[in-house]
Design a protein around this nucleic acid. Structure first.
Lengths: 148, 148
DNA sequence: CAAGATTGAACCCTCAATCTTA
DNA sequence: TAAGATTGAGGGTTCAATCTTG
């Protein structure tokens, strides 16, 4: 046939439900405690860690996996909220984290860690970690992406 | 500590990359061949299968896991494109699939099946299926959700 | 010219407030 | 009244077209 068997269908549904739920719960915990969205957190951690507070927009795009236009829109909204500022630089633009941005990401980090543990790591604690890692690697080769 | 260890961090990133990639690739394949978005496909399959072409909006919301307002907005867009129509019924609203809707979902089903096989099932083929299923169940208990 | 960045329009989702009607 | 549905506003994402500048 060219349709999914009931078993295949169930696995697909289970995967989709799990993927949606984990991502949504982690993001919701962080947002509830800090007001930062997933993308906000991804951007701020990169600027704080990779760049010590100042990071070329270009490098930020590569590290987050965001496309240029998405990042541009998002940084505009974050600048509105005074989480970052932008500054023209040689052959590009530098993104600078503000005091408010530092405070927010500092508060968010432990909340994010706890959320990842509760919603992902603990439920998977019983599994063979090596097998799990290699399975995930097969689904998304590479691995320089997301971070919300 | 209250932060993630490097190992935990890597597992989180691997999970997030895999979840994002699989969902995006399946949706992209269906969209490219049929013009249907993930939510479009979820709605049309439910109306066609659960309701034989007519389904109470209420039941549709429960089956897809969409909140009322999301479903209402989405059905409005789908009605614009003549994929469905809506009709007031006793204590609710019935959603009817149109000929165009039937044609689209008929074309989409095999494309969707092939995409799920290529992007999810084949990469996971080597794993212990029972362990996988129970792990996913632990991440998202329940299981009456999504379907894009 | 070409890489980096921005913009505007269109679509999608969420929240809170509102409308409708059994 | 309460359940079902709609609406409007606002954040988020994508695409294509446009700036900008080394």
């Amino acid at each position: 046939v060219d349709l999914l068997t009931p078993d295949e269908m169930e696995l697909w549904h289970a995967w989709k439900a799990a993927a949606d739920a984990v991502l949504a719960r982690v993001a919701a915990d962080v947002t509830a405690e800090t007001g930062l969205s997933g993308p906000d957190f991804a951007v701020l951690t990169r600027v704080a860690e990779l760049g010590e507070g100042r990071l070329r927009q270009n490098r930020l795009a590569a590290s987050t996996g965001f496309h240029r236009s998405r990042l541009s829109h998002h940084l505009a909204r974050m600048e509105e909220r005074a989480l970052i500022t932008r500054e023209p630089a040689d052959g590009g633009v530098d993104v600078l984290i503000t005091e408010a941005g530092r405070a927010a990401v500092g508060k968010a980090r432990p909340v994010h860690a706890a959320a990842v543990r509760r919603h992902l790591l603990e439920p998977l604690a019983g599994l063979d970690q090596a097998a799990l890692r290699s399975a995930l690697e097969r689904l998304a080769p590479g691995g320089q992406e997301g971070g919300a």
